[in-house]
Design a protein around this nucleic acid. Structure first.
Length: 485
RNA sequence: GGCGGCAUAGCCAAGCGGUAAGGCAGAGGUCUGCAAAACCUCCAUUCUCCGGUUCGAAUCCGGAUGCCGCCUCCA
């Protein structure tokens, strides 16, 4: 498999540290607010990575942490007049609830920073012992950036240039403005832990160094996160870990691109935050997941409501096709008309292509494209009665059916029972439109009776009435079904 | 100011040197009492612009323009 390594800025062939196993660490959230769609993208992207690696047969150990002690949590707690533990717990729960809805699998380890205080302290001590860190009279410990010559390599930054741009905060006791905190002295009413340097709490970056090293060992295979974490978080993490161990830290760095809203970065000041819950009000969670996978994970992704509607229609098309496929396979009769060879070739080509897309740096967008092409082939077979009912045709259709489902299980979309999905979508939308289901059903029934007695003008009038409510009708051999929009 | 990314049809989007995937919208058609849904077919001689390398470039190189991001907390 090819993976784009942020450190080398190139795609590289993936070779795991241990044959058949993958050690993966992804930065999770700081638990101080509800998830927005950017969090969702990061989570979904790495969830697909995990699912794909497992489908390829790797034994994956996946770690995704929670930052549960941090300035932002402390501030939030102060605002809400409760403890930072409570705040963190609330938002960790909210995260898990949102991720479950999005079909993001739980990580094998979901450690909280506060569970690793002793390990962080050990690491800090080691950095002090080797001269990579220093403690101050105020009870702070800082990492000495100048002591690590490779600093800046991951993010492509030059230490001299960085220095030129820094501001010096006189309240800090740093030797150098680039130095960053490993341990922060406790202030009143803040959570703190005893330490050799006085009571305090860990700096932001040290938790990931401590947790990844303790759970996965060094160096581990893949470290992931959002693009914005490259600097300073991952740069600092890398510096600490490598300075302390004297060896390599991570073999492949993967970073997902931003989600933008109307072509702008989401930010509190612009007031354009879209939370996962906002989206769930208007669309099924699977639609959001499908939308997020519609573009390559490293590119910026622009969120808009019309784009969500398109995603919903596309997803519906796949489920519709799967539903048609399902019916055909069930009722195939088993006469024997051979299919043209080109059909087999095209279908098999597309099936291997869609897998290959994922192997190429997780190109989910291209993979979904291949699935749509495959659906076209499958529909063409379905349309031809001779092919559809032949043993050969049914065999190929079954192959396609299984393939689409297996790709769906990796992507975590369009893998549910098609009829259940279509029903759920219809129910969801009807509810949103505030439809009176009783009324709809009775009008549909009434129209059915009118049709039965060939009173087509009355039937059509009733259909128009329903159309005004946003209900469309589909007359089929088994009677009339209705849908919305 | 320093660093990085992006620019492909009305919209979204893949493409990584071999002659433009796919989705939405649109147009025809099959089906239907009429519809709808579903399905089929069609829909970029061309990839922001200008040069260059090459037998061959959306893809590589140089330049221009325009957007976005990072350099401070951030997925």
């Amino acid at each position: 498999m090819l993976i784009h390594n942020s450190e080398t800025r190139r795609k590289e062939q993936f070779h795991p540290r241990d044959e058949g196993k993958v050690a993966l660490y992804v930065c999770g959230i700081t638990a101080y607010d509800v998830c927005h769609i950017g969090h969702a993208r990061a989570a979904v992207v790495f969830d697909v990575l995990v699912r794909y690696l497992r489908a390829k047969g790797y034994k994956v150990t996946f770690v995704r942490n929670f930052t549960d002690v941090d300035d932002k949590i402390i501030n939030r707690a102060a605002e809400e007049n409760r403890s930072s533990e409570e705040v963190a717990e609330d938002y960790m729960r909210a995260f898990s609830r949102d991720m479950d809805k999005l079909g993001v699998l739980r990580a094998d380890f979901e450690p909280c920073a506060t569970e690793y205080i002793p390990q962080m302290q050990d690491l800090i001590q080691k950095l002090l012992d080797t001269g990579h860190a220093y403690s101050t009279s105020g009870g702070n410990v800082y990492f000495r950036v100048r002591s690590f010559p490779d600093y800046g390599h991951l993010s492509g930054r030059d230490v001299e240039e960085l220095k030129a741009g820094t501001r010096i905060d006189p309240s800090e006791e740093k030797e150098d403005p680039l130095d960053f905190a490993l341990w922060k002295q406790a202030k009143a009413k803040e959570p703190s832990w005893p330490s050799p340097w006085g009571p305090g709490r860990p700096g932001w970056h040290i938790e990931c160094s401590a947790m990844s090293q303790n759970i996965l060992g060094l160096p581990f295979d893949i470290h992931g996160g959002g693009q914005d974490l490259i600097f300073p978080h991952h740069e600092n993490e890398r510096a600490q870990s490598m300075a302390a161990s004297g060896g390599p830290f991570v073999n492949y760095w993967m970073h997902n691109g931003y989600v933008q809203v109307e072509s702008e970065k989401m930010s509190k000041s612009l007031g354009n935050f879209v939370t996962v819950q906002d989206v769930f009000q208007r669309h099924l969670p699977e639609v959001l997941r499908f939308f997020l996978l519609g573009k390559h994970y490293r590119s910026p992704l622009d969120f808009t409501w019309p784009a969500m509607r398109d995603a919903e229609k596309s997803l519906k098309r796949i489920y519709q096709a799967r539903s048609n496929l399902h019916l055909a396979v069930e009722e195939s009769k088993g006469k024997d008309t051979p299919l043209p060879d080109e059909l087999y070739e095209e279908a098999r080509q597309l099936m291997s292509e869609s897998r290959g897309n994922l192997d190429d740096d997780l190109n989910t967008a291209a993979c979904i494209g291949s699935v749509f092409s495959l659906i076209r082939v499958s529909n063409r077979i379905l349309e031809n009665k001779g092919w559809r009912n032949s043993q050969h045709g049914a065999g190929l259709l079954r192959e396609i059916q299984e393939h689409i489902r297996s790709v769906g299980l990796i992507l975590g979309v369009f893998h549910n029972d098609p009829q259940s999905f279509l029903d759920e979508l219809r129910r969801f939308k009807a509810e949103q439109m505030g439809l009176d289901l009783e009324k709809v059903e009775s009008l549909v029934r009434e129209r059915g009776e009118a049709r039965q007695s060939k009173d087509f003008s009355r039937a059509d009038a009733l259909r128009d009435q329903l159309a005004e409510m946003g209900v469309t009708l589909q007359d089929g051999p088994q009677g009339t079904v209705w849908d919305v929009e």
